[in-house]
Design a protein around this nucleic acid. Structure first.
Lengths: 198, 198
DNA sequence: AGCATGGCTTACCAAATGGTAAGTTGTCAA
DNA sequence: TTGACAACTTACCATTTGGTAAGCCATGCT
């Protein structure tokens, strides 16, 4: 079955998310699976490549959400709002992935040296496009990227914090906070797009 | 000279901040210093303890800022605002430490098992006190903690993003963004403290 | 039947890692 | 002068790490 790869990727994702790239050994990833460490190497070639695949898969997931939420009949501004909310909900549902993403943000600069491709780039580019299209006064591309970055950052941080909050207050309360967060996201977006300088 | 320890801690801080706990070896910390790996072990006992000391030192620094910005003559609300801004500026000035802090936030759950003491607790407690005191309707302690957490998170994320933004736009632009961020922080605070449910 | 190929395992391995043990050297007090 | 102690160092070491090499075995094509 080819879903072996899929299972490996899933296990690897949670492992990397919990302990980070360096904190996770191939053996540790293989442990819960009915395969040996070498099976991983057989399928992915190296730890670095496995990690890359995991990242690419996350990126693909985000792209799918982005495209799924895209309703061309709406104004770009509304489109962006829908996309953002969809992304937020997706991130919240996929906490593990989001956590891994945040780790990657921290390691990024260092690891970019060794890894050739920056797997999250396509996603970042895509969302930058939308921000640019939605901005009232046509932001420069760089500024749009920063805005995208800020929006994603706000989302990511909140989602990553969620487990801690849940442990303290239970799910109901956190859901409530999440709902509020959506409203704040929308406000943030509006405010951000209307700023002159970026 | 006893500042040997100090130098070791500094090097360790940047190393841990850049590569994380697992990604940093004792040898790597010792490399830029005129000491061997064993000198580190001599002074700190173990890698874990060295890391703990680094964390404690960061926590102490934050506490100092917190107390330094404390003007008892002001209303609690204004006090908190001053403290927050001071913390933000401190975090921005000490990017490396802040980056390490964010890493710790991610590893936290995992590493808490092995490490006995949670070195950032005193700081978190202190700032929770201020939030509670400043809230209009006397938030429960738990809610106050969440608010503190959110405020710190917002700060931390932005500061951590800074190097990336600087690389793209130069320092002037980022300073501009930082200034705006301060204003936003103040707004966030106000909004947050006036919310009924927390 | 023969044989290639994919999916996997067992056997290894060199390098790196955190840590222990046992010095060595300098300083300072009795 | 002696002795204790702090601040290191050199020697080791067991374990873990990512990775290689080579083989086993089922499937399926020729």
């Amino acid at each position: 079955m080819t879903d072996t790869r899929e299972r490996m990727m899933e296990t690897a994702t949670t492992a990397f998310a919990e302990r980070g790239f360096h904190g996770t050994s191939l053996a540790a990833i293989a442990a819960p699976l009915p395969f040996t460490k070498q099976a991983l190497l057989h399928h992915f070639g190296s730890k670095e490549k496995l990690y890359g695949e995991v990242l690419r898969r996350i990126s693909d997931g985000l792209m799918a959400v982005l495209e799924g939420a895209d309703d061309q009949t709406e104004a770009p501004r509304i489109q962006l709002e829908h996309i953002l909310l969809a992304l937020y909900r997706h991130s919240a549902a996929q906490r593990t992935e989001t956590r891994l993403l945040m780790r990657e943000l921290l390691d990024n600069q260092r690891r970019a040296e060794t890894a050739k491709t920056w797997y999250l780039k396509p996603f970042l580019e895509a969302i930058t496009d939308r921000v640019q299209a939605a901005s009232a006064n046509k932001l420069e591309r760089e500024t749009a990227l920063v805005v995208a970055y800020q929006l994603l950052g706000a989302m990511t941080y909140f989602v990553v914090s969620t487990p801690t909050l849940t442990a303290m207050f239970g799910e109901a309360m956190v859901d409530e906070l999440g709902a509020r967060f959506e409203a704040q996201l929308r406000k943030l977006l509006t405010a951000r797009l209307e700023l002159p300088g970026g």
